[in-house]
Amino acid sequence: MSHAPSTLTERVARIALVVSAIAVLVFLVAPILAILPLSVNDSEFLTYPMRGWTTRWYESVFASEKWRLAVMNSFLIGIPATVIATVLGTLASIGLAMADFRGKAAISALILSPLVVPIVIVAVGLYFFFAPLGLTQTYTGLIVAHAALGAPFVVVTVSAALASFDRNLARAAASLGAPPVTVFRRVMLPILAPGVASGALFAFAASFDEVVTVMLLGAPHQRTIPREMFSGLRDSFNPTIAAVATLLTVLAVALLLVVEALRLRAERLKTRAGD
């Protein structure tokens, strides 16, 4: 566009586009940044302007039995759920990519449906379903629920990695004398690893931010970080919440950067010879 002498209207359109796009970016990012400074604001109130610097809100978070328990619960539920989702999701993706059979479309639609089914429906369903099994108010129940919600994330990322996997690589390995297990371990797995890892991170993040099932299925001593945040926001919104929010945001940025790095790595591996 720059080579041709652009008309005034074109220039105006271009400027309008850039300005509105930047405004939307600000809308997306600024609110998240806005809450961070309040976590070190020396005031009971969550308002600007800042009154002075303090670390007492962080101190009170770290000293609090409630938050210590919440962190423990979040990991106690999130990690096993992620492991289950990752193992089952990876196996299923490999199966789905392996062969065509009748009903495959229906099966993949079902496997992916936890991504879109309203979480309330899942939570209420489990609430009734778990009661006679004695699984309400247990860690097992919450882990199972979160694993089901996380598995489709793994299926999506691993399937994408498999779709771009060059079948000739497996053939080349076999032609060089590698038996099937070696082909899987030394060629397929390393190339699929970034996809599996980002799927696992997605699944973990989904569990780590899930409120509704914890609210319906969890016992009082099983409150997770988001569950405590939910209560805090409704009942006593104070700067300790801002401190927790800041910590969660740092974690989010870390996860985001790791997933992006994995994506770039997968892309590099994908760039086939000669392309």
């Binding site: 690589l169 080349a172 994908k270 010879a273």
Partner: peptide
């Protein structure tokens, strides 16, 4: 035990 060369080389990227 045959050697094979593929069109897109199929070199292991990792």
């Amino acid at each position: 035990g045959l050697g094979m060369v593929f069109q897109n080389y199929a070199l292991f990227p990792h």
